[in-house]
Design a protein around this nucleic acid. Structure first.
Lengths: 251, 251
DNA sequence: CTAGTGCACTGGTCTGACCAGTAGGCTGCA
DNA sequence: TGCAGCCTACTGGTCAGACCAGTGCACTAG
């Protein structure tokens, strides 16, 4: 009994080894954004594999948002600066497969936005405050004219808050989840009858939030932002999911 | 002036068209998890492209976690149930490229875990409560023996809370961010001198959190969970990032 | 000095081939 | 009859070599 405990061996495909190596180089900073990879034919020599194998590796890296290639480019594939595109993609998939309901998404936004406001109230700079103020100004102008413009201004307000939170993860997640939510209900809002009233009320709410942020009252800003979002979206969330949203308003 | 406004034409690669089609089928449920794609040679006929093109498309789909293929399998690639693996991958990349600091990650965990507790206090079932209790029991047993076991029990506590929140997005994000944080500091904790004291204190904190959840006091559970996590991780977060963490304790 | 033209290279795609695996049917033995 | 073991027809992974439409650059002709 006993004896050496062998580990199961998973065969590693050649293209995976290539992916690993290049990924490693990017993540450790050996390859920096903007730099170019060697051409496919060059890589094929360096890794001593065929071109198809190199290309499969590049496809994976591209899907992960690490590199991008362009036909005819005399240089090889370009190393990209990190972007949440891949993250966005997989979260969108998650939502589309219907694993995620609108209620969950809105709830998550409430959580993120509230935290962003809480932190922003503490950490915001005066410029960021001015940005938020300007965004509300644009919301006010757009409200009577175009829902699209209003929505853009709204987004830039929340984005300014997220940036002011000082937490890139909050910023990215906010961005990703927001665009998914908007994608799900943009049409409903745009064709809604009372959307003008909704926009006006939303502006008033945003002003209150901003006041709290300006005053440095984080908990208040957080609470108000939750209420703002609840009020704005609750109409589009199925009845049975609303209690879960309301649970967040308790805090 | 005027005239038709032409849109820039982006050339779409053949493999991208294939990716889109299969992705669409998966997301709309035409292809369900467990089902098999036709073999590569079959797909090549259906899409009338070469096998390399088919394979590049499959590599992309695989990188996105939608399908998986196995050599020799008489069926084609398998459609996978959604897993956050791809999400995990891109977030890990984000962290590794050093775009994300430990402070930001811990802060994000505090936000997520607090929300999970807030919701769990409201929505938890008795079984979930029992799971949390059992997890703390295992933490208690493991604390004197093995940090690894303690950590596993700790994870399962937080996971039970996240599940009890009823929000899959919270659950997934928690999972992803936690494993990244643990990956970053596992070694430091394991080799820490006062880790036994740290574990004991952590257990006491977890008990308090659980009490609040059991009592249905969401805000208290949220606050306690933030404090628990702060206390547990603050020692590993660089001095200059700590104020941002403390800002979260205010709420 | 510049406008224009090649050329040498790129990535995208195709064809056709080989290999090592796998599953399922078939064979032949007990 | 039952089953062990082999055969075969597939699978995906990899390779080699080819063509094409783009691109950027050096060179050339004006």
């Amino acid at each position: 009994m006993g004896g050496p405990r062998f580990e199961p061996v998973r065969t590693v495909r050649a293209y995976e080894r290539i992916v690993e190596q290049i990924e490693e180089a990017v993540e450790t900073g050996t390859l920096r954004p903007g730099q170019r990879l060697p051409s496919e034919r060059e890589l094929m020599a360096q890794f001593s594999v065929s071109r198809s194998t190199v290309r499969e590796a590049l496809r994976v890296l591209q899907a992960r948002g690490l590199v991008q290639s362009r036909p005819g480019d005399p240089n090889g594939a370009e190393v990209l600066p990190f972007s949440p595109a891949a993250l966005h993609k997989s979260m969108t998939t998650l939502a589309r497969v219907d694993e995620l309901s609108l209620g969950e998404l809105v709830q998550f936004r409430m959580v993120l936005d509230a935290s962003a406001n809480l932190l922003a109230a503490r950490l915001r700079t005066d410029e960021q405050l001015a940005e938020m103020d300007a965004a509300i100004g644009r919301m006010r102008e757009a409200a009577e004219v175009s829902y699209d413009e209003f929505s853009k201004a709204d987004v830039s307000f929340h984005d300014a808050v997220a940036r002011a939170s000082g937490n890139k993860l909050i910023q990215i997640s906010t961005d990703v989840v927001r665009s998914i939510v908007l994608g799900l209900i943009a049409k409903k809002i745009a064709s809604s009858d009372d959307r003008v009233a909704l926009m006006r009320r939303s502006i008033r709410h945003h002003e209150e939030v901003l006041d709290a942020v300006r005053a440095g009252d984080g908990p208040l800003a957080a609470r108000l932002s939750r209420e703002t979002m609840y009020d704005y979206y609750v109409g589009y969330v199925p009845e049975e999911e609303r209690p879960a949203l309301r649970a967040l308003l308790e805090e």
